[in-house]
Design a binder for these strands. Structure first.
Length: 485
RNA sequence: GCGGUCAUAGUAUAGCCUGGUCAGUAUGUUGGCCUUCCAAGCCAAUCACCCGGGUUCAAAUCCCGGUGACCGCACCA
């Protein structure tokens, strides 16, 4: 399905829409989830918890979004999550200073160098604006983190650019108090903030966005001793980039070196099994190993989980082997001890992270699930029942003859257990189609026969098929049909 | 951030060039009538000129600035 069609559905049916839209000065890159979006997001996260957090026995935390300056000195974000830029005084075009110098005279200045070095290089080599030839202004750092001032003195802090820093700084306490043993996963769902230069395409590139991150702490000496790898030995994954993509299994990928070890392969395997259950078309997915230049500054080995969408290949998850970059950095900066005992040896754990973009994942589920059914002149969101924002519609065939009251009773009987939507108004076919469009898998219709024999019609979304179900079996029938796999 | 295109009800659009009716239409939504299972019909109601400034007796319409959206470039874990 095309991007525009998904965007329109989101806007019209309360999945997501622009933030602050009544004000014309609202900035790009901020979006809200409406009722159906929130409901779907909640179910998506429940699936994530089931398939990753609970399955692997991880801990889940919920950390602060605002963190003090020291955290980002230690993590490297203050230096490395910023680009040196220079702006043309004449035409206003902005360039990356390091790239500009590299192109103009071949000199390589690391992007984390002192700003003065860029100014000197630009002056010495007589570099001018490549667009208009104008004079370039002094180099500045553009850091993608949002700075905030705390308290009356405005003490320096930042909105976190990734959720995982909370996990790293909390690690010593978590490991001690929660009886941690390596390897151990710590998970977190929450918002992160990045001051993107040009956010685009609604949920796909946001300045404020949701991540579901998992940091697995491990003993780097034991990456090949992973008993639970057996669970995913035969799990199908697609691995590679443009041109060399191949479908394989986790075991084969480790054997031929496409994946570095059983430890990484296990987590890639359970991640693939999770995404299979979201209904995303795994035939259009791949794990792509990133090259040196593409990787984040903290990653030693990185795989992106990407899915083909109407906008091209879209990165949904970044899997990074971060080594001891973070625990080492926080240990040095804070003076705290981050080493833990693994058996009788003391180790500074390494970290493998599974950093999931929730917003992008939800978009992809919508795009891959949305269909136009021309035969029946309807739009159907064929989302998995356990992810549907509304589980069941409860409809009266007509309002009169006591059917309205009977329908209300049926609704009241189930609306605590399910996301049920009550609707009395308009033609029955119109109501079915409205439910189809938000992916509601079932509709229960109360008619005159209901008053006689306590049965209702159960109508199924994808097939449009109908069958009669006794009211006494309704709860059981729905709960089976919408259960998580 | 740069360049191009664009901005009118929830959605899709007419009107703008050539300034002057109550800003039109479709669809949606809400209520009613009718209706015993797939967007039927009828009646009624409801909702809009992106923001700021300028020109003018008068601005949806012309001019300037801002913001946003889409596309391309650059950027992007």
């Amino acid at each position: 399905m095309e991007y525009d069609r998904v965007a329109k559905l989101a806007l019209e049916r309360g999945f997501y829409f622009p933030s602050c839209e009544v004000y014309s000065d609202s900035q790009a890159g901020f979006w809200e989830y409406g009722p159906n979006g929130v409901s779907m997001k909640g179910k998506f996260l429940e699936l994530w918890r089931r398939e990753l957090v609970r399955r692997d026995g991880m801990m889940e935390i919920d950390g602060s979004q605002i963190m003090t300056r020291s955290v980002f000195e230690a993590s490297g974000h203050l230096d490395s999550f910023a680009d040196p830029i220079t702006r043309c005084a004449a035409c206003g075009a902005t360039f990356r200073a390091d790239r500009m110098i590299q192109e103009a005279c071949g000199a390589t200045i690391p992007e984390s160098a002192d700003l003065a070095e860029f100014d000197v290089a630009i002056a010495d080599n007589g570099i001018s604006c490549s667009r208009c030839g104008g004079t370039l202004g002094p180099a500045k750092k553009f850091n993608m983190m949002f700075q905030v001032g705390i308290g009356p003195e405005g003490e320096e802090a930042y909105l976190r650019p990734e959720t995982c820093q909370s996990i790293f700084v909390d690690f010593p306490r978590l490991f001690k108090t929660m009886r941690g043993r390596l390897p151990v996963g710590v998970a977190q769902v929450g918002k992160s903030f990045r001051n993107e230069i040009s956010p685009r395409q609604s949920l796909l590139r946001l300045r404020e966005f949701y991540q579901a991150e998992i940091e697995v702490f491990c003993n780097p000496q034991k990456l090949r001793q992973v008993p639970k790898f057996e669970q995913v030995r035969d799990t199908t994954i697609r691995i590679g980039g443009d041109g060399d993509m191949a479908e394989t299994t986790c075991a084969a990928a480790v054997a031929d070196g496409a994946l570095p070890n059983e430890f990484v392969a296990y987590y890639i395997g359970i991640l693939a099994e999770f995404y299979e259950k979201t209904g995303i078309d795994m035939g259009r997915s791949r794990f792509r190993r990133l090259g040196e230049k593409e990787k984040a500054f903290y990653a030693e080995v990185a795989f992106d989980f990407e899915v083909e969408t109407a906008t091209g290949w879209l990165e949904l998850v970044a899997c990074n082997y971060r080594t001891d970059h973070d625990l080492g950095g926080h240990s040095r900066h804070s003076g705290e001890k981050f080493e833990v005992m693994d058996g009788d040896t003391k180790v500074l754990p390494h970290v493998f992270e599974i950093s999931m973009g929730i917003d992008r994942s939800l978009y992809t589920i919508l795009e891959h699930s949305l269909n136009e059914d021309d035969t029946h002149d309807r739009t159907v969101l064929s989302i998995r029942p356990y992810l549907a924002p509304i589980h069941v519609g409860v409809l009266s065939l007509v309002k009169k003859d006591g059917l309205r009251e009977e329908t209300d009773t049926v609704h009241r009987a189930i609306n605590r257990r399910y996301d049920a939507f009550l609707d009395h108004s308009g033609a029955i076919g119109r109501r079915y189609r409205r439910l189809d469009e938000i992916g509601c898998p079932f509709a229960v219709t109360v008619d005159h026969q209901t008053l006689e024999d306590d049965t209702v019609t159960l109508r199924e979304r994808d097939s449009m098929g109908q069958r009669r179900v006794p009211l006494s079996e309704l709860d059981h029938t729905i709960s089976e049909a919408i259960a998580f796999p």
